[in-house]
Amino acid sequence: MSADSAIQIESLVKHFPMGGSVVEALKGVNLALGAGEFAGLVGPSGSGKTTLLNIIGGLDSPTQGSVRVLGEDLANKTHKQLADLRKEHIGFIFQTFNLLPVYTVFENVEFPLLLLNRTNGERQKAVDEALERVGLSHKTKARPATLSGGESQRVAIARAIVKQPSIILADEPTANLDAENSHNIMRILVELNEDNSTSFLFSTHDEKVMAYLRRTIHLVDGNITSDEVTTPSAP
């Protein structure tokens, strides 16, 4: 494993019980993601993309194999240690935004910093910067229900980046957005990657997302079928 590896996966297998049978979602996946990479897991629905992201994020546990994130072997971690890893180093962006509906935009973005016990001043500054970065400084007091899909996803991005994590895991981040919003979101994520050297791992089957990727990993039926460096085609 290289010293600057963000993610190192070896022989990862994941089985799900379903009814009386067992579904093999991942069948011996090997993958290494370096710091600052902008990579995507590409494949059809049911290929295992989301399962892989969940395991990397410590939301799911592997059936076999090892997963190391930022040098830490997740197999040896307690729930609390996994929560601490996510709290400090991993940001999530979800397909359905998953904003907390009773809180304002500002409060949604502030939440990860509350978990990190940041001071009022630190939180205010970090949230302002994150919202400015995604172009929503004027919406701090709005509730999620009043936002468009694109705005909601930008809030979710601000929430993911506000603590300046080492890794951002984005599960189909543009699936619920129109083309224009999809491109806007991806441009923001590219900027963040370039400015902060944050590692990005997407799961997607959206060609608009693929156009921005610098590394494309094809996942079919739980197996990586190709892993290639790509040149972004998006402007």
Binding site: K80, A83, L85, R86, N98, L100, F111, L115, L116
Partner: peptide, 15 residues
């Protein structure tokens, strides 16, 4: 449950 899932994903502990 959804809200709880988000909070756990962001890094809040189960306890």
């Amino acid at each position: 449950y959804g809200e709880l899932g988000v909070r756990l994903a962001i890094g809040e502990s189960k306890a």
